Simulated assay, not measured.
Amino acid sequence: MDPDAALELVKHGITLLLLDVPQYTLVGIDTQMFAVGPAFKGIKMIPPGVHFVFYSSSSRDGKEFSPIIGFFIDAGPSEVIVRKWDQQEERLVKVSEEEEVRYVQAVRSLEFDRQLGPYTLSQDGDWKRLSNYITKSTIERLEPIGGEITVTTEPVMKNTPKTTMEKSLDEQLKTIKFSTTVDKSERKGCYYTSIPRVIKRKGIQGEELTSLNLDKTQLLESLLMKDYGGSEDSLLGELQFAFIAFW
């Protein structure tokens, strides 16, 4: 890429500054993933808009990894997002406002430029197709308190059929020792729209009730009006959000 064009992308793109992330940690954004090396300080040249940032902490030898933690961002041109690794909790946290101002200025002065990996722009089209219905309001409506999304805080569905992969995940989560002890009552998952598994209506029974449970068209239309104000885009945004959060 032409140096002048690259500089323009650096200046006008989003910068994700990730400080003190341990080596071997997996860090990703959208459809891209990086294995952290000793000089890694984040990602630059990110196109403005909605993105999903995720990471997984590693053991010292880089052979074992914790469950992925992720969060959505919706940032504008030239915006700098700063996170710092908390060694005790093994997760990325926000810095103080004073620190943030200092780091943002350093990024805009290109002090971290050599330590920032470039966003692979050729993959941006794939990401846009996966996330084109997700908006800022979608994120604000669905994200957990604090914004962090991880499978360990999502409610467990009981008495429902599970695939082999889901059963394997359940067993894995039972054996994982989390770095931070969190009371189950404090854990908050995403605020997804509740969808009834079985339709029950007064005055309807037999063949008609069976038909309603087999063909969920009426249920979909009802949810669309009640929970999404008739907006199909809002429904599609939630579906994309859920798919990306746990793909």
Rank of each mutant, 00 (worst) to 15 (best):
V198R: 15
Q115D: 12
T138A: 10
I68N: 04
V27Y: 05
S78L: 04
W85E: 06
S66N: 11
M165S: 12
D2M: 04
L7R: 15
K136R: 13
I46E: 04
N213D: 08
F71V: 01
K136D: 11
V36S: 05
K63L: 15
E79S: 13
K188E: 11
S109T: 04
I68W: 02
V182F: 03
G146F: 13
A39V: 10
V95S: 03
Y119H: 10
T31I: 10
L17D: 03
Q115N: 13
K167L: 15
Q23G: 02
K226M: 08
W247T: 09
T150I: 11
R197E: 13
H51D: 13
P118L: 05
P3Y: 02
L16F: 10
S56Q: 15
S211L: 13
S122M: 03
K226V: 07
V27N: 05
Y119Q: 02
D227K: 13
F52P: 04
G76Y: 01
H51C: 03
T210W: 02
L220F: 15
Y191F: 14
K94G: 00
S109D: 14
I81H: 07
A106Q: 11
Y119T: 01
Y191Q: 10
P161H: 06
L110K: 14
T120G: 00
R201V: 11
D126Q: 11
F112E: 02
K128V: 14
W127A: 03
E154Q: 15
E140H: 07
L169T: 01
V53T: 05
A242H: 12
F65V: 09
S211I: 05
L7Q: 10
Q240G: 09
N213V: 04
F241R: 08
A39M: 08
D61G: 04
N132V: 01
N132T: 01
R102K: 13
S96A: 09
T138E: 12
A245G: 07
Q87S: 08
A75S: 15
K84P: 00
P161T: 06
I145K: 05
S78K: 11
Q87T: 08
S109Y: 01
G49V: 03
I244T: 14
D20I: 02
K162Q: 14
S122Q: 09
Y133H: 15
F40D: 02
F54G: 08
Y191I: 04
F72V: 06
Y192L: 15
H51K: 04
W85A: 01
R187L: 14
D233N: 12
D20P: 00
G37V: 05
D227H: 12
R141I: 01
A242N: 10
I149F: 11
E8S: 10
L18T: 03
D86H: 13
S58I: 07
E98H: 09
S194P: 00
V10K: 07
E166M: 14
L7F: 09
L219T: 06
S168D: 07
Q87K: 12
D124M: 01
T150K: 07
I43M: 06
S56G: 08
L239F: 14
W247E: 15
Q205M: 06
K177D: 08
S96P: 05
G62A: 07
V50R: 03
T210A: 09
P38K: 15
H12R: 14
G117K: 14
H12Y: 09
G42W: 04
F71G: 02
D215F: 09
K44R: 15
L110I: 05
D170V: 00
L92W: 07
K11S: 09
K128Y: 05
D170N: 15
V93S: 04
K128W: 00
G146I: 06
P3V: 02
L130K: 12
K202F: 05
